[in-house]
Design a protein around this nucleic acid. Structure first.
Ligand code: MN
Ligand code: MN
Ligand code: MN
Ligand code: MN
Lengths: 223, 223
DNA sequence: ATAATAATTTAGGTAAGACTAAATTATTAT
DNA sequence: ATAATAATTTAGTCTTACCTAAATTATTAT
């Protein structure tokens, strides 16, 4: 159980690898590069380093992409817990809106102490989700099981509740908020177009037509 | 008016140069190195860089030490404002004690946004001093004038009020708190020893004898 | 005024983490 | 099965910010 502090860069790599391997498949060099906004060549270099670190943080084989080791996953969950707790805290105590919190949390996540983490978690009563509806890893670094499907899989007459919005795009978040699409919102699917995959949805009194680009980022529970 | 973000290292150099030049005299290479906990040779290198930056951040001549330019001073005050607002914020909203806040603020000061700065300042009602009694630079980056003298200059029968404690040593801070020596505390000097410069002080019901090492770090106003 | 000492600077190196350009390997379409 | 294309890796640079060792300059004591 090594407690050596990982660099901010490494923390970001691990966090993004965690998110990219959510589907069980290894994260590709290019996908990681795009997420991290750096060049693929740089990713290869770092990934090789992480794979040969004292306790290896990732599993890596040339051209096969990367996955996290147990150690790497722990470190990733630590960063994700920081990030999501911070987002919740910024909203709850400083009046940030859900489209403003991500960038601030992105920088704070790497520098807060474990003590700070504990204090904000306790101050908020140990919240289970961040402002976007994403689950917050527990203090012992277990990621709560998710039970939600992408809205894009829904079809007319199905109803449900919005659980989370997986996006850090502040324009999109403001747009969705204006439509009433935020965690907890109830909706009914009214129409579906097989050509462009548009979904017509009723939320409250509003009816909105959403493209696949959006519906694939909204996760919901059927009801 | 350049808004290019300075590196964390540079921000720390400027902050420490500000504090070291408080007395009007330039900061020496060695003094800076000690504060920054790096080697003097490294300080020389950085200081040369800061002096020849696009808008120069410091004034520097070989063997003469450094002082801040207007630009450098602005940047230093920005960091110091962050630091002190953060310390106040940590105490007021998360229950930190005055001996716990410094290290946390030391890391956060470099990554919070101007928006975050504004929000915590407003949430606290724009406090004038940090938990150690140090003045917080205003939003337009003016350092409030200080009107306090070191306790070490006091002699028997003089009375006063503690204004600030200039120390980041958490052991010392806890010790002083136990003696009742915190900002706002009233005291009377009972005795002075010219041999060791010890001062015997009465604070509330407690009487304590403090050495020069401590009395030179406590700043007070006579009353 | 000199010599010893202290402070500072120069020179040369290292480690992180990025980049570009070129080479290699995989995948896809013909 | 080949050829074209896409993804990935290698090799070599660059910048930042440190370091050590050696040289230089300043200060202090004799
Ligand atoms: Mn986020
Ligand atoms: Mn980050
Ligand atoms: Mn402080
Ligand atoms: Mn700092």
């Amino acid at each position: 159980m090594m407690k050596q502090t990982l660099t901010i860069s490494i923390q970001d790599y691990l966090k993004h690898i965690y998110e990219l391997t959510d589907d069980g498949k290894p994260a590709s060099t290019n996908a990681l590069a795009e997420r991290l906004k750096i060049k693929p060549a740089s990713v290869t270099g770092m990934v090789q380093k992480l794979a040969s670190a004292k306790p290896a943080l990732v599993e890596y084989q040339k051209h096969q992409g990367v996955t996290l080791t147990k150690e790497g996953e722990r470190a990733a969950l630590e960063v994700i817990r920081h990030h999501r707790l911070l987002e919740a805290w910024l909203v709850q105590t400083l009046g940030y809106s859900w489209d403003e919190v991500h960038d601030e949390a992105e920088r704070l996540e790497h520098v807060i102490s474990e003590d700070f983490e504990r204090r904000i978690a306790a101050a908020m009563g140990h919240p289970l989700r961040d402002p976007h509806g994403e689950p917050i890893p527990t203090a012992d670094l277990k990621m709560p099981l998710e039970d939600s499907t992408p809205l894009s899989a829904f079809r007319p007459n199905q109803t449900g509740v919005v659980q989370s919005v997986k996006s850090a795009d502040d324009d999109l978040l403001r747009y969705l908020e204006a439509l009433g699409i935020t965690p907890g919102a109830q909706f009914e699917v009214k129409d579906y177009s097989s050509y462009d995959h548009n979904l017509t949805m009723k939320i409250g009194k509003k009816t909105s037509v959403l493209g696949l680009n959006i519906t694939s980022k909204i996760f919901v529970e059927e009801s």
